[in-house]
Nucleic acid binder design. Structure first.
Lengths: 344, 344
DNA sequence: GAGTGCTGAAAAACCGTTTTACCTGATGTG
DNA sequence: CACATCAGGTAAAACGGTTTTTCAGCACTC
């Protein structure tokens, strides 16, 4: 299985009967030569199973065909799907990804960034646990391009995030389309910009008087929120939650109170973390942030930047999509959503 | 912040007043020279902030200071802690890690392995979702060393796994020490070797007639198992579960039946997946597999192999540890565990 | 005093590509 | 026909290190 000797471009050139320079140009589609020569070289290269030595190629000042992915998301909840997307976008281009999981202190961050720069990465993609929790390391003024995915960077940086507004709108519209009218939004700390965006979008549709409750990103807060809501004289008939963990807490709390989900109350989560959303009883309808697609896009962007193509800075959003399971009821209505919305 | 020009070894040599050859040898602690010269060169290098170009260094046929981590664990449940450990062990050595998340088909696996070999990795660490689910790609006969972490490789390979027997023993002993006598083990499919190891260890302590129930690795199976057990005339007073998801299902099912955990029944999980174990009510006592330490060890091993140091092949196990929360009750007893065991 | 052995350091070769500058015919051109 | 132009291709110089070889100087021997 293991090749005894690696074939160099020198071998290809010799077999094809040309010089190394010609071989190099033929394989990289540069320079001038007969089309016949070019294809002949390419064919011999393929026949010999030639794979260029990436180190040597990188040495000539070109690119290293390597990018770095920096994250502080230790459990990989967000990073791994993003990573999968990046890889998907880059593997055909022969680009590999260094993953660095950093702790929440600037020193360790710098060590890893330096290590990446030593390795001559063509670019760095920064991602994190959740938007707004900035990475504890300054990536401005680096000699390589940077793309922020799911984490905010400097104002003039290239940033990719899920469209929180649109996601919240999808959820709220769906609940309204189901005929629900007493909506509540139970979400995370309002220090997060994404929380504010979602709350805005929710209020715009559900009405300014529809309650928005802030707490921790945990199941416990879901329980707590239900306790608060059911202490009121009038209870909601639909709850849109800031993430799936809160949603699971809410659903569990409702079941314990004997409130039927989805018959009496519809619940929609956010994140589509399958390990949570699929295990909830009933399984959660939730907003999927398309992290893999976000990763793909980040990969494409960093590649463009590395190649020197112009990319205009700024925040670009990717649409979320509503994944229907059973916690909001009326899956059948999904198709009718648009027309129903007309009435609303 | 960004250095305008990168300093090369040439600059160090010029400033230190020696030749590049001498500079190289001084920095790598090779060759012969006055100790004075050596330290002088090292000091100038440090003063100038010299970082050797890894590509150039790798080109001379040495090492690339890069290793590959191959996994098919899309959600990163196991991979990311392992990864963090690997990184921790290697970052001081200037070694970086390529992460490749592969799909469950051999073709995509080969593409990524080839990509790693192209990048001249010094070694590959293979890890997966759960032991026994082999990676869908053949890593034997590769031109670089391979270490399997948490996944089985060939018989003559270097493999690192958590000590399932010892972990199961810890759990079972603790339940016995609490005074429980009607133990049950609810676990995953018996096609997994780790499931068998744990079941063996459990049976050896709890008695051959203590039931072992196999099912899926899901919360749903936990519910189902409780339903089966509580249909019997005599119910268990302690349940040891194969993973935290099953354990959570069990705890939820017991609460719904009005069975008090931990007063009436003690429950212990496996994995210490905090997102599950900490959110369960009451929080799960569970077996932690020390994945980070496992990663550190894997990093050390692959480094030794890459440097040509002899490493004897075979499976080496790392101990698990019991993490006490509230689902088994009697945390106070933990200290007395050993003496109580004397009686058993 | 020529040969020998040893030391510290410089010079040169090499790693496998890409890139630049140059060369050689063939072709158009006034 | 002398000359510029150009297509097709080659030799050589990078790239930034490491490794091998060479070399000058010095002390020691016989």
């Amino acid at each position: 299985m293991a090749k005894a000797e690696r074939i160099r471009i020198y071998d290809v050139a010799r077999v094809a009967g040309v010089s190394v320079a010609t071989a190099s140009k033929a394989l990289n589609d540069t320079g001038r030569m007969t089309e016949a020569t070019r294809t002949r070289v390419k064919q011999t290269a393929a026949a010999l199973g030639f794979r260029p030595n990436v180190m040597a190629r990188a040495l000539t000042g070109q690119r290293s065909f390597t990018i770095g992915l920096l994250t502080n998301d230790t459990y990989g909840r967000f990073t791994l799907p993003v990573m999968a997307g990046i890889n998907e976008a880059l593997v055909d281009q022969g680009v590999s990804v260094f993953l660095c999981v950093i702790e929440d202190d600037a020193a360790s961050g710098m060590v890893h960034v330096d290590a990446m720069l030593d390795k001559q990465v063509d670019g760095i993609i920064a991602t994190g646990k959740r938007i707004d929790r900035r990475l504890p390391v300054d990536l401005s003024g680096l000699p390589v391009p940077v793309v922020y995915a799911f984490t905010e960077g400097q104002a003039d940086a290239v940033t990719l995030v899920a469209d929180d507004r649109q996601g919240a709108r999808e959820a709220t519209e769906h609940l309204l389309a189901l005929g629900r009218r007493r909506l509540v939004h139970v979400t995370g700390p309002d220090s997060f910009a994404s929380v504010q965006s979602r709350a805005d979008a929710f209020s715009a549709l559900a009405g300014a008087d529809a309650p928005v409750l802030h707490g921790a990103w945990s199941e416990a807060w879901g329980h707590e929120a239900v306790a608060q809501l059911w202490a009121q004289p009038v209870q909601p008939d639909a709850i849109f939650c800031g993430n799936d963990q809160i949603a699971r807490g809410v659903v569990d709390a409702l079941r314990e109170r004997g409130v039927d989900v989805p018959a009496e109350v519809s619940v929609v989560g956010f994140d589509n973390w399958e390990i949570v959303s699929a295990a909830t009883r009933p399984p959660l309808s939730t907003i999927d942030m398309n992290l893999k697609e976000l990763g793909r896009e980040a990969g494409r962007l960093i590649l463009d930047l590395a190649e020197g193509k112009p990319v205009e800075p700024g925040i670009r959003t990717l649409p979320c999509k509503l994944v229907l399971r059973q916690s909001c009821g009326g899956e059948m209505l999904a198709a009718r959503k648009d027309e129903v919305l007309q009435e609303v």
